[in-house]
Each structure stands twice: as C-alpha cells, then as structure tokens.
Design a binder for these strands. Structure first.
Lengths: 153, 153
DNA sequence: CCTTTATCTCAACTTAGGTTGAGGTTTTAG
DNA sequence: CTAAAACCTCAACCTAAGTTGAGATAAAGG
C-alpha cells in the first residue's frame, strides 16, 4: 500500500508554504516527489515533516544550503525516523545557542556603549565584538526578523 | 578651520569597509561627502562614527534601510553628539533584546522537540513558534493556524 | 613630463530565497 | 462534454547588500 500521497496544492495548503516555494525546494534538493501518469507531482507523507523542519530551521537563521547538507545525512531509502530528526535538531540547537550567545555579547557591548555614548571606531567594544558567527556564512548573515511588521507589499 | 577631511580611500582603510561599500552607503543616504576641486569625495571626521554604527547595527541584524531611518532622526546641520548616538543605541538595544528573546523561545521549543522527536507539522510547538509570539509574552498560543492556501509568513 | 595610483560614474553581476507570468496540459465538477 | 481549476516548465523579475569592470579623470611621485 502506498499510504498517503499528496498533490503539490495539498502540501502547500497543509504546510502553509506556496506552491512555487515547493517547486523551489525541489530544485534545491530539499524535497522530492514522484509523478503520476499526467506528470503531476505526488508527495509522500514525509514531505510534510521535511517542510516543517525547513521552516523551523529558517526561523533559526539556518540557510537552505545548510539545511540541504543536514538533510543529506538522512537515510536515502527509508523514511527518516524519530532518531534521525533528533540528530538534526540537536545539531541545530547547538548552532542556535551559539548565535544567541553571540547576540547577547553584542547586546552587552551595546549596553556599555549606551553608557559611554561611544559606538565609535576601534576603541569601542561594540566595534570589536567578535565576529565568529557573523563571519561564518557565505556572504552576509541573513537573520530572521521576527519583530518587524513593516513589510513592503 | 575645516578640521579633518578624509578621502574615500582613507575612510576605507580606517573603517575596514570597501570603497565600493562607501559609495553604496552614500547612494543609500547613510553617509555624505563633500567634493574637492577635482570631484573627489571629502569626508568629515564624523563619517567614521557613522560607518562604525552601521557595522554595529548590521551585526545586530538591522537592515540598511532601518539604519537609514534611524539616521534620519539625527540632527541635519550639526555633528551628532553623544546623546544623539545614545538614543540610537538604546532603541536598538530594545530591538536586539526582542530578537534574542524570540530566538530563545525558539530554542526552548527545539529543546522540547529533541525530546519528543517531533518537529513536525501543526502539533509541534516549534512549528507554531510564530512571529507574533515574539512581540508579546505568554497567553494562548494559537495552536491551530488556519490551514488555508499559500500564505507567506 | 610621464607613469602610477587613486578616484570618478555607470552598468552589470552576485547570492539567497523565492515570486510572477506566459503558454500549454490534466483533472475535476457540473 | 465542457469549463474551470490545478498543474506543468521555463524564464524573468524582486530585494538586500554589495562587488566587479569599463572607460575617463585627477593627483602624486620620480
């Protein structure tokens, strides 16, 4: 029995992700789909979890290519089980903690700067806030901006 | 006396920012420069602090356009003083704190998920770590988002 | 004076993460 | 059976934050 199979529209509806994004994730190798006789995509049930993991990881500031790397450690020919996902999340938990620590150090520096009014070149602790995480990604680190409501249409 | 004036190359060297980035910041209205007889940019000393602030804000995840907005509150015809900069930093301190709180909530959800191995659709707290949550503290987490068709978060 | 080095402007390219639209096919509902 | 809704592919476009390169000019050094 082939359990559940979903169309791209159904996955979009259930996951809250646009169809175009699902196509995009497929091109990036993050999800896969079979095809029916009429060339329509057919997704297995595990795609829902994958998409959920993608969204969660993005909220943590993890890029799609990092997600893809992590996914490549998942079993190829078996649906990932609880333990597989646990490994992923614990690795990311680590990363997230480091990012949080970094931002906290940054905030502490800033607190100092509020006192001194400096925020200026090299003499300022802010300027020298160590850059481990900021420097780690390819190009500028894109942080998720949860707070900001201002959005262009 | 016209105190210090710097060329674009000097500012680049002192600030550690590429000349092309300085041009870019100027186009974006983040910094300004006068010109000499031969059309070369001449920067006042305050540009160094501005650039430092830009870099610091970027580390906090603040975008250039947000920075530009913040800068527009600075005095137009007087070099900003300690108090002006203090205002900026305290607003950003606030923002940064919120961002940190958001990420911590995310991490906590993830910790739960490591235990349960879930990280899956709607039933997972991780999935529902909604951006709205970031703004206000406790209260009924909407456990059941409308599962309607494609919507961008 | 002549050669480098520094700048100038403007346009095109880059990466990430998608979205939008055109033009064509398949499925589904009435 | 027919119309509408869903889906297909492919290419172009979008924002952010810059970088790269071409072709021209300015300033500095020897």
């Amino acid at each position: 029995m082939k359990s559940q199979e979903f169309s791209v529209g159904q996955v979009a509806a259930r996951s809250g992700v646009a169809v175009s994004a699902l196509h995009f994730y497929e091109r990036k190798g993050l999800i896969t789909a079979g095809r029916n006789a009429g060339n329509r995509r057919r997704y297995g049930a595990d795609v829902l979890r994958r998409v959920a993991v993608i969204k969660a990881a993005q909220k943590m500031g993890i890029t799609l290519s990092e997600i893809q790397q992590a996914f490549s450690a998942l079993p190829r020919h078996r649906a990932p089980d609880k333990k597989d996902w646990q490994q992923l999340s614990s690795a990311w938990h680590q990363q997230l903690s480091e990012r949080i620590d970094y931002l906290q150090r940054l905030r502490d520096s800033l607190t100092g700067c509020i006192g001194c009014g400096c925020l200026s070149m090299h003499k300022c602790p802010m300027y020298n806030a160590d850059d481990k995480l900021a420097a780690q990604g390819p190009g500028p680190v894109l942080l998720d901006r949860p707070i900001n409501a201002s959005q262009k249409s």
